[in-house]
Design a protein around this nucleic acid. Structure first.
Length: 529
RNA sequence: AGCGGAGUAGCUCAGGUGGCAGAGCAAGCGGCUCAUAAUCGCUGUGUCGCGGGUUCGACUCCCGCCUCCGCUACCA
């Protein structure tokens, strides 16, 4: 590969600015955030990009309906809807690109100019059913059939066949190169079901595709034909490139960034937009002579009541509804642990509540709480110096090693639920350990002080490992655990702790000052939903 | 219609080159008291979508069927 192996560039799709953000959008961003935080804690040079897609007729139309310019409308939506979501779920993205930004429009024009120069764009005509009311072309599948006529579903008026001059991209030329590429690199589309879908699609043959629109004005003008704008998808997909500094001088800031991070390591997408990312997008890159992403990963949908969330059925749930209830950390934990990434999964408030209570409040939160209470009570809030480890203690030592390895392998493959499960097994083992060792009984005899110290040390040290491993998933709560352990002072910043070193026993120094504080995961009050 | 995925405990879902059906949650009982009425242990339940076939044996393999979902060229 052309870049340093120690860099990791991940993108989310850019979200269509006109939609109302719901937990499906937040789910994708959360997964990207957890994965990039994990890579950061592996000491890699990470770049995490997200953003908004702002062109197209829908935005143009709602802006008109609201009596403002499209850009003003988009500004408002970005500011009031999309940027706040990132805060809500606590995403640590490195950049946020908007397709109306100059760096993007400039990059898109340069890109297509290059592709045209390379001979992959030509002028042609597009013919299709056109609704005069909508002033746009319709898809055959969208039309309503009535009395032998085909009607526009919005205006219920007959459509007419119209043709317009368009510029076409020679997609067909890339059919074989794409098949070859994916045959050689089967890991480039994941999960395997997505791979199969794309391969089936490719093998049935590709046709050239119109890459410009003449009837739309809210878009990026073709540099060689100002009457046309770039078709939205062929504008939007390029954000990954323009945000990375494509086409900028090599010695500029942006140019250096591009050199450092390209190609994309993971193009994270929802399964509904897989084809655009696994077919059109790499074909465009091939046409421009740019290296294609290493992997596109299509995750599943969140189902509510067994169905895809929908605006018309009002099943869309805003991320803040959930975050207000359980907090950002639990939001992140819940969606990534309860649902297998890559498959569809059901969301329900009952399940969310049950898992929060069982796994976070009773499991992890209470473990920290009981440990802190005992260190306060028996050792004046100072982490004690351990004595010789027994076989029971060694179980924890070994488990941290094996579970962290398992979690690492799973999360690098974007199998978040398996990864989280592995970490959860450490929490469960620690709770079991405390119950079995019965430190409160040992404490009754002053002669056993050293054993008591050892037991409490083992639990504290285990909490250290758990906090580090869970940090990419629950940054705030793990920082609280870190604080309880007094680890900021005795070890340093939790975000700087390396995944690889988690299993090295004994990093939490005796003498660390423990602060019990408030419950990390307070019990839920059953008043919402 | 074609292709692909799915149908397993009350709920959410694992699993399996064919050999007494699994986890978590929920429910019940018991232990413990450091802790956020917490934690730990024990306990049940299933015609593994339907009908055939292969086999000593099928939830698993084969055939047919039913139901749900996705993809099948320009929807952002």
């Amino acid at each position: 590969m052309s870049k340093d192996k120690n860099t990791f560039y991940l993108t989310t799709p850019i979200y269509y600015v006109n939609d109302a953000p719901h937990i499906g959008h937040a789910y994708t961003t959360t997964a990207g955030d957890v994965l990039t935080r994990w890579h950061r804690q592996k000491g890699e040079n990470v770049w995490f990009l997200t953003g908004t897609d702002e062109h197209g007729t829908k935005v143009q139309r709602t802006a008109e309906a609201n009596n403002v310019e499209p850009k003003v409308w988009a500004d408002k939506l970005v500011k009031e809807a999309w940027l706040p979501v990132l805060k809500t779920i606590n995403a640590a993205n490195d950049d946020f690109i908007r397709t109306t930004e100059q760096r993007h429009t400039k990059g898109v024009q340069a890109f297509w100019e290059l592709v045209k120069k390379n001979g992959a764009v030509y002028e042609g005509s597009y013919e299709g059913p056109y609704c005069v009311g909508c002033e746009e072309f319709k898809l055959p599948g969208d039309l309503i059939k009535e009395d032998g006529q085909e009607l526009c579903p919005i205006h219920s008026k007959p459509v007419e066949m119209l043709s317009e001059k368009n510029w076409f991209f020679k997609l067909k030329n890339y059919q074989q190169p794409l098949i070859d590429h994916y045959t050689k690199n089967p890991e480039a589309i994941q999960p395997p079901s997505a791979y199969n879908e794309v391969m089936a699609f490719l093998k049935q043959g590709l046709d050239d595709i119109s890459m410009s629109r003449s009837a739309v004005s809210w878009g990026i003008k073709l540099p060689w034909d100002e009457k046309q704008v770039v078709y939205v998808w062929f504008d939007a997909l390029l954000n990954y490139l323009t945000a990375a500094g494509f086409g900028e001088p090599e010695d500029s800031e942006a140019g250096k960034l591009f050199k450092r991070i390209w190609p994309i390591d993971v193009n994270l997408v929802g399964k509904d937009i897989l084809r655009f990312h696994a077919v059109y997008w790499p074909a465009m890159l091939m046409a421009a002579g740019v290296e294609v992403p290493k992997c596109v990963f299509a995750h599943g949908w969140l189902l509510v009541g067994g169905e895809k969330m929908s605006k018309t059925k009002l099943t869309g749930i805003a991320p803040s509804q959930i975050v207000d209830y359980v907090g950002a950390d639990a939001f992140r934990y819940y969606f990534l642990s309860a649902i297998r990434f890559g498959q569809d999964g059901s969301f329900s408030w009952e399940d969310l509540t049950a898992r929060y209570t069982a796994e976070l409040a009773n499991g992890l939160g209470n473990l920290a709480s009981r440990e802190a209470a005992m260190i306060e009570k028996y050792f004046e809030a100072i982490v004690p110096k351990p004595g010789e480890l027994t076989a029971a203690d060694q179980v924890l030592v070994e488990l941290i090693k094996s579970a962290s390895k398992e979690a690492d392998e799973a999360i690098l493959k974007l199998d978040f639920s398996t990864g989280i499960n592995a970490i959860k097994s450490i929490v469960e083992a620690a709770n079991l350990y405390v119950t079995e060792q019965e430190p409160w009984k040992i404490a009754k005899d002053e002669a056993n002080k050293e054993r008591l110290a050892t037991v409490l040390y083992c639990v504290a040290e285990t909490l250290r490992a758990i906090a580090i491993l869970y940090h990419p998933i629950m940054p705030e709560s793990t920082a609280k655990i870190w604080n309880i352990l007094g680890a900021n002072e005795s070890i340093g910043d939790i975000a700087k702790q390396k995944i690889e070193n988690v299993g090295n026993w004994g990093q939490l120094p005796a003498g660390s000052k423990v602060i019990k504080g408030e419950a990390i995961f307070p019990r839920l009050v059953e008043d919402e939903q």
